[in-house]
Design a protein around this nucleic acid. Sequence first.
DNA 1: CTTAGTGTTATATCTGTCTATTACACTATA
DNA 2: TATAGTGTAATAGACAGATATAACACTAAG
Lengths: 124, 124
Amino acid sequence: MKFDDKIPIYYQIKEYIYRQMITGKLEPGEKMPAVRQLAVDLTVNVNTIQRALSELVTEKMVESKRGRGNFVTEDTSKIKELKDKLIMEQLKQMYDGLQKLGVSDQEILDYVSRYVKEQERDQK
Amino acid sequence: MKFDDKIPIYYQIKEYIYRQMITGKLEPGEKMPAVRQLAVDLTVNVNTIQRALSELVTEKMVESKRGRGNFVTEDTSKIKELKDKLIMEQLKQMYDGLQKLGVSDQEILDYVSRYVKEQERDQK
DNA sequence: CTTAGTGTTATATCTGTCTATTACACTATA
DNA sequence: TATAGTGTAATAGACAGATATAACACTAAG
C-alpha cells in the first residue's frame, strides 16, 4: 500500500480500516485479518498495525479477543456515525481550504460541479 | 498559530505563505517579514522557518537576498499557477476521499451544495 | 568603520514514528 | 496435552522533525 509520507502510517492505516468498515468490505462483527497478515498485506511492521488497532479498540470500533482475533464492532450505528463524521470532515476541509485561498461560495460550487462532471466524463 | 500535529510544521508554514501570496496579503516583489520575526509570529524555531523558506526558494516562489531579506517572486503567472494547483488538489482530495467512502457523484454534489448553503446561513 | 538588521549554517538534544526482533499470553483443535 | 494461530508487550536502533543556541556572512545606514 502507498502512504503519504507527510502523515503517520499508523494514522493512514486507521483511515484505511475505517473505509473498509464503511463500505462494507469489513462487515459488522466480522473477524479481521490477523495482525501479522495485515502487516504483510500493507507492508509495514506488526507494531505499526498494532498502534492503529489499539486506537480503534479504544474508540470501540474494533473489539480485540486475545487468541481469537480482532473483530469489527457489531454496533452498526457507530459505523454510520463514523461515516457521517468523515464525510463532514472532507467537506469542511475542502470548504475551509478553498475559502482560505479566497475562493467564494459560488465559485466553490462551480468548481465542484465542473470537477465532478469531468470525472464522470473521464471514467467513461 | 495552530498546527495540525499530524503534518510537519515546516510544511504547514509553506502552505500558510502560499495563501498569503495567493490572497495578496503578500504582493509580488514585496519584502517578507524577517525570518526571526516570522519565527516569533508563528511561535516556531528559526530553523523551522528556514526549512520552509528554503523550499520556497528552490521552487522560485521566494527570492532570498542575503543581508536584505526574502522577497515574494515578481512572476505573477507563477502565483496564479500555484493557486490553480492548490484548488485542484483540494477538489481532488475531497472527491477521492468521498468516493472511497462509497459516496456517489450525485451525492457529492448534494452534500457540497447543502454544506455551502449552511455556511452561508450560519455566517449571517 | 561601526552597528543594526538581515539571511545562513552548524551543533547538540529531544520527541515521535517506524522497524526488527523476541518473548509472552490466550484459544481452538487435532 | 501438544501445537498452530492468534493478540500483546518490550527492547533497541534508525530516522525525521523540531528546538535552543551560537556563530558566521552580507547589506544598509549612520
